[in-house]
Computed example of a mutant assay.
Amino acid sequence: MNAASVGHGAHSVDLRIQASDQVLGHVERSLRVRLNRNTVVRKRRTVGTRTDRGTWVRIERRALDRIGAQGWNGTECATLLEGVAQPAWLGSLVWRDANEPVMWRADETELLPGEPVGTAVLADDPGLPDGWWRALNASLDALAVQETRRVATPDTVTITQDVITRSVRGVFGDAFDTTVEQWAPAHADLNWANVTAPAFSLFDWEDWGNAPRGLDSASLWASSLAVPALADRVQRERRSDFESRDGKLMILFVCSKILGPDSHPEDPRLGPARRMAEKTVADLQSD
């Protein structure tokens, strides 16, 4: 795990199937902790596990060209946020891969207060109580009034006016203005795999930063579209975001990912996303 010079581009790796024993061993030695292999949770580019000291370690692999000028310390920087329910950050480890132009990062945090609600896209209503929704709203509202120089990187891509315009116009045309008026801090990866229940907590903060108003609300809504009642609940709870002009642009931004050239014909979100996008385009054209 020593540093090495950059060679060719980083290979695409899925950590759900890629062997990671060497990486886990490196983290154990460096953080002086034992990882519980029976609790490992694997995602496409992250691995998480409990430790023998009652904490959680999240390990991420990211290509150098996806890190950007602001660095790669979102979880660490999120410790400064006030009024946001999240596990406390305890320490980290960062190293450069010896064989590829990628970096690895391990963050140790408190254990989550509950289990993740589900996968990124839900197929069933989790039946969350009113108190859970109040906690979600309190954290998102508190996050939106923070100050930061960070810029959000949803899907590891820095969000800019140009990115928004190209994404939206590439799917919905150019018959309306795509200029964002209000930018505010956002988690930038808000989906059902990154929130807990029954106690609410928001985790995986690597991509947070300033983004157009309504990005988080639109992202959670898109994650809910296969369950109409749940998507409706998100809209009701975050009504002010959805009714704002920037919120409408964020609806189209997330819908562009569902309805764009990489869409899957059997995605249950296609119909609801298309109907909402048509209504939103009409609203923006009439402004």
Score class of each variant (00 low, 15 high):
residue 188 A to Q: 01
residue 150 R to S: 04
residue 267 D to H: 07
residue 223 S to F: 02
residue 19 A to G: 12
residue 77 C to K: 15
residue 90 L to D: 01
residue 174 D to L: 09
residue 147 E to F: 10
residue 9 G to F: 13
residue 70 Q to E: 10
residue 33 V to S: 07
residue 240 S to Y: 15
residue 39 T to Y: 04
residue 47 V to Q: 04
residue 220 L to A: 00
residue 190 L to N: 00
residue 47 V to L: 11
residue 76 E to N: 12
residue 90 L to T: 01
residue 231 A to G: 07
residue 255 C to F: 12
residue 275 R to Q: 15
residue 110 E to P: 00
residue 181 E to V: 08
residue 117 V to M: 01
residue 50 R to E: 15
residue 218 A to M: 08
residue 25 G to K: 04
residue 251 I to M: 15
residue 22 Q to M: 13
residue 81 L to N: 01
residue 210 N to A: 10
residue 93 L to N: 02
residue 199 A to C: 08
residue 236 R to P: 05
residue 247 G to A: 08
residue 163 V to M: 06
residue 226 A to H: 09
residue 110 E to S: 07
residue 45 R to D: 14
residue 132 W to G: 06
residue 210 N to C: 13
residue 84 V to C: 00
residue 274 R to T: 10
residue 104 W to Y: 07
residue 244 S to W: 12
residue 269 R to N: 02
residue 104 W to N: 02
residue 171 V to W: 07
residue 144 A to H: 06
residue 224 S to H: 03
residue 250 M to Y: 11
residue 261 P to I: 13
residue 177 D to I: 08
residue 80 L to D: 09
residue 48 G to F: 06
residue 206 E to M: 09
residue 17 I to P: 07
residue 269 R to K: 05
residue 90 L to V: 02
residue 97 D to V: 02
residue 44 R to V: 12
residue 88 A to M: 06
residue 82 E to V: 09
residue 122 L to K: 02
residue 243 E to D: 15
residue 107 D to W: 04
residue 57 V to K: 10
residue 226 A to C: 08
residue 261 P to S: 15
residue 235 Q to H: 15
residue 219 S to A: 12
residue 186 A to T: 06
residue 273 A to E: 06
residue 93 L to K: 01
residue 183 W to Q: 04
residue 81 L to M: 06
residue 63 A to S: 14
residue 53 R to G: 12
residue 206 E to C: 06
residue 140 L to F: 02
residue 152 A to I: 03
residue 176 F to L: 07
residue 68 G to F: 05
residue 240 S to P: 12
residue 40 V to R: 02
residue 70 Q to V: 01
residue 157 V to D: 02
residue 64 L to F: 12
residue 74 G to N: 03
residue 103 M to V: 10
residue 78 A to E: 01
residue 119 T to H: 08
residue 286 S to D: 11
residue 46 T to V: 14
residue 150 R to Q: 05
residue 71 G to P: 07
residue 286 S to Q: 09
residue 195 V to W: 00
residue 185 P to G: 05
residue 113 P to C: 00
residue 202 L to M: 09
residue 145 V to R: 04
residue 180 V to E: 03
residue 142 A to I: 05
residue 74 G to L: 02
residue 185 P to F: 08
residue 41 V to C: 03
residue 9 G to T: 12
residue 236 R to Y: 14
residue 213 R to D: 01
residue 134 R to Q: 15
residue 268 P to S: 03
residue 229 A to E: 11
residue 45 R to C: 10
residue 198 P to C: 05
residue 167 S to K: 13
residue 183 W to A: 04
residue 241 D to L: 11
residue 211 A to T: 00
residue 280 T to S: 04
residue 196 T to H: 00
residue 278 E to S: 13
residue 130 D to F: 10
residue 82 E to Y: 00
residue 278 E to L: 12
